[in-house]
Design a protein around this nucleic acid. Structure first.
Lengths: 112, 112
DNA sequence: CCGCTGCATAGATGGATGTCAAATTAGATG
DNA sequence: CATCTAATTTGACATCCATCTATGCAGCGG
């Protein structure tokens, strides 16, 4: 999926969101709309050096390995994380820009 | 309203997210994981006085009124908006705390 | 070369979700 | 009271999604 250059930081109460932008954004939130994926993201973000080995991401959940792999794929395709193979193991880390963009979305300037 | 006093601002790379917290948060993101609901939220947030009449929220979409009503209900149940009836029409506005909480989630202190 | 382990992919299935048409509630007005 | 409009609720249906088992692929060690 194209990484379609996100408009960086359009706030939610700013200019009206276009249909396309809404679809693209909804895709990101769909990736976040699952307890397992949220915890995965949390584990990765809070991991040593901002990364985590897949081998450590399977045990905390009462789920099969393929299921975890599936969730990681969803997060990856949403542009929230990226993975890298180092020898036997695969490591994932968060994509800072993706999270920063979301933070900007919820900034409410008009709320004095 | 269950209300469940959100832990305000736990950042994503902070302490490990509990199962319960993850489920609750995922519920909020599920509400955001739809283009129509994102545009609705955007329209409401950018409306005059930070609110919008339902009568103005139906026309921008090529959807039936019940469908819009359904989406508004989802956003309301997620604690993202709240509605009020004034005479003939119903007006919705965003819940600032809900958005602020999300903004805090994506703040990445460790990413200097 | 062979087997073992870590991770991903493929296919199948039960449950959740977006949508609509029809019926219902609430306010306003004649 | 009768009726019109605004908005929600209900019920049905098609689609999507999380999960599993089984299979495939890549490194590592004997």
């Amino acid at each position: 999926m194209s990484k379609s250059e996100a408009p960086c930081c359009a706030p939610l109460d700013g200019p009206v969101l276009s249909q396309e932008e809404a679809v693209e954004l909804a895709g990101v939130f769909k990736a976040l709309a699952d307890p397992v994926r949220l915890r995965l993201l949390n584990l990765i973000a809070s991991g040593e050096g901002g990364e985590a080995c897949v081998c450590d991401l399977t045990t905390p959940f009462d789920l099969s390995a393929p299921t975890i792999s599936h969730h990681l794929k969803v997060l990856r395709q949403a542009g929230l994380i990226e993975g890298e193979r180092r020898g036997t193991w695969v490591y994932y880390r968060v994509v800072p820009d993706a999270l920063t963009r979301l933070a900007g979305l919820f900034a409410l300037p008009a709320l004095a």
